[in-house]
Structures are given as structure tokens and as C-alpha cells.
Amino acid sequence: MHRGRVIFGAMDEVVFGRPAREAIVEQLDRLGAQRAFLMVSGTLNRETDEIEKIRNALGSRCAAVFDKMPAHTPRAAVISATEQARAAKADLIVTVGGGSITDGAKAVQLCLANNVTTSDGIDAIRTRGGVSPEMKAPTVRQISVPTTIAGGEFSAIAGVTNEAKRQKEMLRHPLVMPRATILDPELSVHTPDWLFLSTGVRAVDHCVEGICSREAHPYGDAQAIKGLAMLAQGLPRVKADPKDIDARMDCQIGTWLSTGPLAAGVPMGASHGIGYVLGAVHDVPHGHTSCVMLPAVMRWNKRDNAERQALVASAMGHPGKDAGDVLDRFIRDLGMPRSLREVHVGPKHFDHIATQAMRTPWVPRNPRKIDSASQVREILMMAA
């Protein structure tokens, strides 16, 4: 018998396949916002006219623009964006960019609501041992236009890097989920191919770990299996022709579906857990962590969840094949790194990574039980 609980997140709408600038104006009208604080990709702002088009469409309702969020969302940049949003008297945050910007805005919402003014002040609002502290709910919410496809715009969790500790920490509140997400595939054409494709593998990882979880259920499965099929077909088409807008749209919708299991309470596994550590400690890009770890995790887990893994191989168009092999080949064909060595992480780091990974929320909930750092080390050796 299935047991579980599906909590519907605090998002009102997802708009897809329409120009972002039109959809953003409609959202401001709908929400009655007058002072939009734009948190945007620096590259998009400096090297294209896309942000300019959005600013022109918003006119006097654009209160300020922040375009200096580095990868992995460091605390210092969150505080700097918060100061600017506070000074601009923002009543809504609009993000246009990748996951670090989306997460940055979620963190800004909580900093504004809880009067956080310093990097150390973030300690008061971060989760500890998976538990969020008591805090004031955000009143300045956000809408997001993602240009990468890792899927953070559909979650109520933000990852922020504590630079001093080189650790990714979680901030969580139901209302940090964007009120609306706008999927405009045309904007993603400016995203570097390696970044679009690797974050796509991150979305594949959401689907796969959602399907393979011990706690999987039909509601999450329905979304993850369809999402995986769309990503498995769409990503190779984007690689073959970066201007294929239909393929990009399929990848964006597949990514939206990939977040279904997580939103419905299904935990991720060791690929995500180890990935957090590789990102925070070794600066491995978000997507690359999944490229390197997912096939190894699947092979290590297969002893305990072979029938769930069969669903993965089928959804990817290879029924009856080994899911770890199918994923290995798929990621290789996208031209992505497939070993820890390729992302400059060697065996001398494995003990530290394994110890840190045990502290993440996901490693303890991996489908094949992980009781010790030595088992994480086994997986790392398989990915070496």
C-alpha cells in the first residue's frame, strides 16, 4: 500500500512558450506590483539586449537591476542584493537567469523579511539538520524566468554557499517558491551549450532519483517518467542544433516535470547528496556533478532497486538495458564529463567528500542504505 503526502507548493502559475517580457508585464499586472527588483544574469545584461527589452517593457515599474550573482550563490552576494532591494523599496523580485540567481532571490526574500543585514546574519535563517528555524514569512515574493534547466525555480529551497566554510547551506520556507515561473525557450539560446546541457542532466538526475527512491509513489512517478522521456529526446536535439526552439521547450517542460517527485515529498539519493559537496567544496558546476555521479550511483544501487531502474531505461527509450549504462552513454554523447578526474577531483579528496556527504539530507535516504562514509567512498571510486 502506498503512503505519503503531496503538498502543493505556493506557485500560482507556470507560463510557457511566450516571450518573457510580455509574460512578466502580465504577472506584474496580476500581482499589482509597482517596484520590480530585477536580479539578472550579468552575461545576459552585458552581452545581449534581452534585459534591456524587459526593462523597457516594465518602464517605471523597474525599480533597480542587480547583475552580480556568482555561481553557487555566495552569502556576500546575497547580502549585497538584499541591500539593493531594500534601498529600491522593491515589492516584487523578478529573476532572469540560472539557478544561482533564482536561489539568490529566494534568499533575498528571507533576508528582507527577517532583517538580515550581514553574511553572518544568514545563520539565523538557515536550516540545521534539515530543520528550518522560526522566521518571518517573506512579503516581497518573486517570479522567475530561468535560462538554465536545473529546476530550482519550482522548489521552496535555496542553496547558499557559506564562503568561510566552503559549504552549501539550505534556506527553506514554503513562500520562497516563485509565485510564477515563465519558460521562454528563446531566452535560453544565449546560455552556453555546456551549461544548458549539463543543467539538463541535473534535471535528468531529479527524474531518475525520484523514480528510483524507496519512497517513490505514482503521483511523482507520472511526472518523472514523462519528464525523463522529454529530456532524453530533447537534450540530444539541442546538442545537434542549438537553435531548435521546440527541443529547448521540451527540455524546459521536462525540467518542470522533473521537480514533481521532490515537490511531492520523494527524497533524492546519493547523486544529489554527493553533488552538493562537489559543488561547495570543489566548485564543480551543478550540472557536472550529476554527469559525473549519477551512473555510478545507479550501478551501486542496482542490487536493491533493479525493477525501479528498469523504468528509467524504458523511459529513456532503451527497455531491457542496464540503466547505469544507458545514462553513461547518454551523458557521454552530450559531450559532458563522465569522471571525477575530468572535473579535477582526485582520490586524495575522497575521504573528506564522503564524510561531508553523510551530512547532506539525501545520502541517508539513498535507495540502497548508506550507513557509513566508506560506502560513499565505494561510489566515488566507481566514478573516479
Rank of each mutant, 00 (worst) to 15 (best):
R359L: 13
K165H: 15
E307C: 05
G254L: 11
A124R: 15
T48M: 07
T43R: 05
P367W: 00
G287Y: 02
N115T: 06
T48P: 00
I225R: 15
A232D: 12
T73L: 09
G324A: 15
R86E: 14
V145Q: 02
H349S: 14
N162I: 05
V277S: 00
P74F: 01
G200Q: 02
P347Y: 02
I157F: 13
A150C: 08
P178I: 02
W194T: 12
Q84D: 08
L327H: 08
V297Y: 01
G335E: 11
K168W: 01
L262T: 12
D371E: 14
R55K: 13
V266N: 11
G129M: 11
A63V: 06
K239L: 14
G130N: 09
I379A: 04
V131A: 13
V96N: 08
T43P: 01
P19M: 12
P133R: 05
A240V: 04
H288T: 02
V131G: 02
T148K: 03
P364G: 13
Q252A: 10
G324I: 02
D244I: 07
E52A: 10
G59P: 04
R126D: 09
W362H: 14
M298P: 04
W256T: 03
L38S: 04
A232Y: 01
L231R: 00
L44M: 14
T199R: 05
Q142A: 13
V78W: 00
T102P: 00
I253C: 04
A315W: 02
A158W: 01
R166N: 15
A383Y: 05
S290E: 09
Y276C: 07
P295F: 11
P138K: 05
D333Y: 11
A36G: 09
T117S: 11
Q356S: 11
H173F: 03
S271E: 11
F154A: 14
N162V: 06
D351I: 01
R365W: 02
M336C: 11
N162E: 14
R329T: 15
M230S: 12
A105W: 07
L294K: 06
G346K: 10
H2L: 08
G98L: 03
L231W: 03
I353D: 13
G234D: 08
E134G: 05
L31Q: 09
K168Q: 09
T95M: 05
V65R: 10
G159H: 03
V326Q: 03
V312E: 05
M268N: 09
E22L: 10
A90Q: 02
S198M: 01
R75G: 13
N301I: 08
D371P: 01
L228T: 07
E163T: 15
I125P: 01
R179Q: 15
N114F: 08
P267G: 00
G260P: 02
R179T: 07
G200M: 00
P70G: 10
P192S: 09
K369N: 09
T259D: 00
A36M: 05
L175A: 11
A280E: 11
